[in-house]
Amino acid sequence: MVMADGQVLKDLLLQIRDTLIKTPQDLEVFLEGESIRPGIIVLINDTDWELEGEEMYELQNRDLITFTSTLHGG
C-alpha cells in the first residue's frame, strides 16, 4: 500500500477502511470503532505492534504490516 510520508499506523487502518473494505460486515471483522478489534494481532515487521508504539508507530518505507486473528480451536 502506498502511504504519504510521515504517516502513522492509525492512518493505515483508516486507509484500509476507506479503500479496501466494501461492506459493514467486513468492517466489523477488522475495526471496533476506529481501533483494531479485540482478537486481531497486529505485527510490524514480525514484532508485536505494542512494542513499536501501536497506532502512533511512524510507518517506514518497506514496512511489512501483518494482521492475524487469534485462533481458539483445539
Partner: peptide, 20 residues
C-alpha cells in the same frame, strides 16, 4: 496480557464449524 478483551463471539470459529 496478549488479549485483555475477548474477541466478539461471531469472530470465533470452532473446529466443528470451520473444520480443521
Amino acid at each position: 496480557c496478549f488479549y485483555p478483551s475477548p474477541p466478539p463471539p461471531n469472530s470465533v470459529t470452532a473446529c466443528s464449524d470451520g473444520g480443521v
